[in-house]
C-alpha cells in the first residue's frame, strides 16, 4: 500500500536519509520509531509528497506521491506542530479541506464536532496546543483518508483525549481498512496501537517487523539448571542459580528444548515490546536504547 524504496535525501552536506526502505501493508498501523534526528520527520515529508527524494521512490498503491494530487488526495497528514492559515477558524479550514479533498465528509465532520466540541468561530492559532491537535484530527479524519500519517500525534493531548482520538483512528482502521503510519520517539506509546514497527537511526531503517512476528519469535526463559543446547541466545544474565535467557525461536520449540534439558526449574515468559527491541538491536547506539527504555 505505502512503500518507500531506497530513498536517499541530502540537505547540503548532511545526508538525512540513507537507502531508506519501508513498507506499510493496507490496513496496518505502522509505528515509525527513532531518536531525535533519526530522519523520521524527513521520511514522513517524503511520504506525504512534501520533499522530493534525491533517489529512490515513494508510492501509495503503486502510484508515486510527489507532485501527484490524486495520490496525495488519499493521504491525511497531521504534522508534529499543527499549522494553519494564521487567522483561519475551524469552519474556514473545514471549507478549505472540503475544496481540497474530494472525499471530505461533511456529515462526519459534524459528528466529530460533537466529539471534540471545539469552537467553530475561533481562530485555530488562538486555541491551546491540545485543541489545535484535536482540530487537526477533526479535519483530517473528516477528509476520509486512505492513509493517515501522524507525526508525534499525541503531543499536547491529555490522556483521555489521547485515548479517545486513538479509538477514533482505530475505528477507521477497522471500518475502512485505513492505513496508519505513526511516528514517535517513544515506543511505549505505540505498543498498544501498532501491528508493525520500524526503527530508524541516522537516516537508516535498523529494523522493520510485524509485531506478531517479533512477539512470537522472541522469548524470555528463566531457568535453574543446564541451559538447553541448540537455541539462539540473544542475551544471558544470572542471579544466583537462576539464569535468564532471551531466546529467538518459537515458544513450543523453546519449551520442548527446556523440558528436554530437565532443569530444576524453568519458566517461559513473554517480552514487552521494549525488551524485544533492546535485545534485537543489541549493539546499537545509546540513542536508540533511549527510545526503548
Amino acid at each position: 500500500m505505502l512503500e518507500m524504496q531506497n530513498v536517499n535525501k541530502s540537505f547540503g552536506a548532511v545526508q538525512a536519509l540513507k537507502d531508506l526502505s519501508l513498507r506499510v501493508p493496507k490496513g496496518a498501523v505502522y509505528g515509525l520509531v527513532g531518536p531525535n534526528g533519526a530522519g523520521k520527520s524527513t521520511a514522513i515529508r517524503h511520504i506525504t509528497g512534501i520533499y522530493r527524494p534525491d533517489s529512490g521512490s515513494v508510492t501509495i498503491g503503486g502510484a508515486p506521491v510527489y507532485e501527484n494530487p490524486e495520490a496525495k488526495g488519499r493521504l491525511g497528514y497531521i504534522p508534529d506542530e499543527v499549522f494553519y492559515f494564521p487567522m483561519a477558524t475551524l469552519g474556514d479550514m473545514a471549507a478549505f479541506y472540503q475544496g481540497m479533498y474530494p472525499k471530505f465528509d461533511r456529515e462526519l465532520y459534524t459528528k466529530l464536532t460533537e466529539v471534540f466540541q471545539l469552537p467553530e468561530g475561533k481562530p485555530i492559532r488562538r486555541m491551546s496546543k491540545g485543541m489545535q491537535k484535536q482540530a487537526a484530527f477533526q479535519l483530517v479524519l473528516a477528509a476520509r483518508p486512505e492513509v493517515l500519517i501522524l507525526d508525534e500525534p499525541v503531543d499536547g493531548l491529555d490522556p483521555i483525549m489521547r485515548r479517545q482520538i486513538m479509538s477514533l483512528v482505530l475505528g477507521e482502521v477497522a471500518q475502512r481498512e485505513m492505513t496508519v503510519l505513526i511516528s514517535s520517539h517513544n515506543l511505549r506509546e505505540l505498543e498498544d496501537l501498532c501491528d508493525h514497527v520500524g526503527i530508524m537511526d541516522h537516516g537508516r531503517m535498523l529494523l522493520e517487523r510485524s509485531l506478531a512476528d517479533m512477539q512470537g519469535n522472541t522469548h524470555k526463559l528463566q531457568i535453574v539448571g543446564d541451559v538447553p543446547e541448540g537455541l539462539e541466545i540473544l542475551h544471558r544474565s544470572q542471579s544466583g542459580r537462576l539464569q535468564t535467557l532471551i531466546l529467538r525461536g518459537q515458544a513450543w520449540e523453546i519449551s520442548m528444548a527446556a523440558a528436554a534439558a530437565k532443569p530444576a526449574y524453568y519458566d517461559l515468559l513473554p517480552l514487552s515490546l521494549e525488551e524485544i527491541f533492546i535485545y534485537e538491536l543489541g549493539g546499537v547506539s545509546d540513542a536508540v536504547k533511549n527510545i526503548l527504555l
Binding site: 515529508r45 509528497g49 512534501i50 496525495k72 488526495g73 493521504l75 504534522p79 499543527v82 499549522f83 481540497m100
Partner: peptide, 16 residues
C-alpha cells in the same frame, strides 16, 4: 517562507 506552513501547504493534493 514559514517552514511549517510551507510543509503543511505542500502536503495538500496540489501540483506546484
Amino acid at each position: 517562507y514559514n517552514s511549517r506552513m510551507c510543509n503543511a501547504l505542500h502536503a495538500l493534493p496540489l501540483r506546484r
